[in-house]
Design a binder for these strands. Structure first.
Length: 465
RNA sequence: GGAGAGGUGGCGGAGCGGUUGAACGCGCCAGUCUCGAAAACUGGUAUGGCCUCCGGGUCAUCGAGGGUUCGAAUCCCUCCCUCUCCGCCA
């Protein structure tokens, strides 16, 4: 959520930001509604103040007369009744007025709220303008000795690569057919060494964050209330991407939603709290199952493990003091963790600066990490894919957008409450990461060589197959 | 799932229709005392919105929302949550 005060001060900044993100939200309309709302509130508060004053002044008198009225008869009764009517006249009128204001305020509340939640966080000034992911800008590349994505796979490895789907099939690592039988399209079953590798990678990534980088390990709910989804900025915009558990239809008061990322639980954890400054920065990591409907992605990445409804992800989240420089430093640091890990896993990757059109509502900056996937991309003359980059990580800088929505604050050195800044980044998402993993580390004989760091997590297994 | 109890400030805990944003205690902060500390004493100690001639003013908030009333922490309704006992169960 954006800061309404900042919006009033500088609407042009937000209009420019919304445009750059390709949002058509009507900011002028929100300003109008907000102005009307404040005018009504001021007028209503004046009425309330008077009502309060009158009530304190004459309330007890009124109470006394009402008490006497019960016993009174004849002339005295008539006198009391008229006195009471006189005393009640003004407050009654005020009450009606206040009620009328209430109705007016309530009438424009839904539209006001919807607009406020829909206004995107303006991108940082140095984020390149662009319409879609096609306009993202490559920042850097890394590849291990012995494999350069710029050179065709066969040329440097001496054999034609299999796609991950083919490898999975020949090594019996995943059962798509039975997955679909049980749970529909985009479902799968990891089995045997497929499951072992999946677990090994998650466990390695989790230990890397908690043991080497000191992040606090967490396990958080993956089925949450709507406020969590709104607070973290996924709703209302991404409502159709989340699985909806309609508990209300079974008599419960509230519906629940399956989270698409551990970020929801890690950020929602401190919602509505005022954290002590000494607790910052907060660094959390979780491994959680993620659920995504992938609505609107029909026909995209249908084969294999790239785009699935359910996966597991190690996620990192940082909450720190509201400071621009620190914010950027953490962003680099969190991306650095991922780079270190991918280098140890010997997976070629590149960093992509996402353009404004690819940021989504909540981010002010986002850098994606893409791994090289030989079995992806356009087909070559031999009818085989020529390889392409595939997104495996996404590092977001959110400034105070999320903490404001979550009402998560800290107290600064002047004892004032401030919304801290938050970031999140994937550490490792599997099974998607298995795609580059299997394809890059495949050997000519069809086996998969397991990178050193993962072996302890697989009973010292050196290769699959 | 059944039966019961209850949700008040950082915590404990009063209040149960009329200056109650809320007694009292603890905690915390500042001051006095002290070489310093402890103790004691004194004072202070919620969050948010809006308005502001920047002195302040004002409204809201006692789990959440709605209602009754001139007036609600107090009465009514709905929901959420916690606890105890029983049942079921990974």
């Amino acid at each position: 959520m954006i800061d309404l005060k900042k919006l009033r001060d500088d609407p042009a900044r937000f209009e420019k930001g919304a445009k750059a993100k390709g949002s058509s939200v009507d900011i002028q309309r929100l300003l109008e509604l907000d102005e009307a709302r404040r005018k009504l509130t001021v007028a209503q508060e004046a009425c309330r103040a008077e009502q309060k004053r009158i009530s304190k002044e004459m309330g007890p008198e009124l109470g006394k007369r009402k008490g006497m009225l019960k016993k009174a008869e004849g002339e005295e009764k008539a006198r009391l009744e008229s006195e009471i009517a006189e005393l009640e006249a003004r407050p009654s009128a005020l009450k009606a007025e206040i009620h009328a204001f209430d109705e007016q305020i309530a009438a424009n509340e839904p539209e006001w709220r919807d607009l406020l939640l829909a206004i995107p966080q303006p991108p940082a000034d140095d984020v390149p303008i662009g319409a879609s992911s096609d306009d993202n800008v490559e920042l850097s590349q890394w590849h291990p000795d012995g494999f350069d994505p710029a050179i065709p796979f066969a040329e440097q490895r001496g054999f034609a690569p299999k796609t991950h789907v083919e490898l999975i099939d020949s090594l019996d690592l995943v059962d798509f057919e039975r997955g679909v039988k049980m749970a529909g399209s985009r479902s799968y079953v990891l089995k045997g060494d497929g499951m072992r590798l999946h677990q090994a990678m998650l466990r390695y990534a989790f230990d890397f964050m908690t043991q080497e980088n000191g992040f606090t390990p967490m396990n958080v709910p993956v089925i949450v209330r709507e406020e969590c989804m709104v607070g973290t900025g996924f709703f209302p915009g991404g409502r159709d991407q989340a699985y909806h558990v309609e508990e209300s239809r079974r008599g419960a008061g509230q519906d629940l939603f399956l989270t698409g990322t551990g970020e929801v639980g890690l950020m929602g954890y401190h919602a509505d709290e005022i954290i002590d400054r000494s607790e910052l920065p907060i660094t959390y990591t979780t491994v959680s199952t993620c659920f995504r409907r992938e609505a609107g992605a029909a026909g995209k990445d249908t084969a294999g493990l790239y785009r699935v409804h359910q996966f597991d992800k190690v996620e990192q989240v940082v909450i720190h003091e509201a400071d621009e420089e620190e914010h950027r430093a953490w962003h680099r640091k969190m991306i650095g963790y991922v780079e270190t890990m991918l280098q140890r896993l010997e997976l070629p990757y590149r960093l992509l600066q996402c353009c404004t059109g690819d940021l989504g509502t909540k981010n002010e900056d986002m850098i994606d990490v893409e791994c090289w996937i030989p079995g992806r991309g356009k087909d070559g003359p031999d009818g085989r894919p020529t390889g392409d980059w595939g997104e495996t990580h996404s590092a977001s800088r959110l400034s105070d957008f999320q903490t404001r929505r979550l009402n998560l604050r800290y107290r600064d050195e002047n004892k004032r409450t401030v919304f801290p800044y938050a970031l999140n980044n994937t550490v490792l998402a599997s099974p998607r990461i298995l795609i580059p993993m299997l394809e890059i580390h495949q050997q000519e004989d069809g086996t998969i060589l397991i990178p050193e760091p993962l072996r302890p997590y697989m009973g010292d297994l050196e290769r699959i197959g």
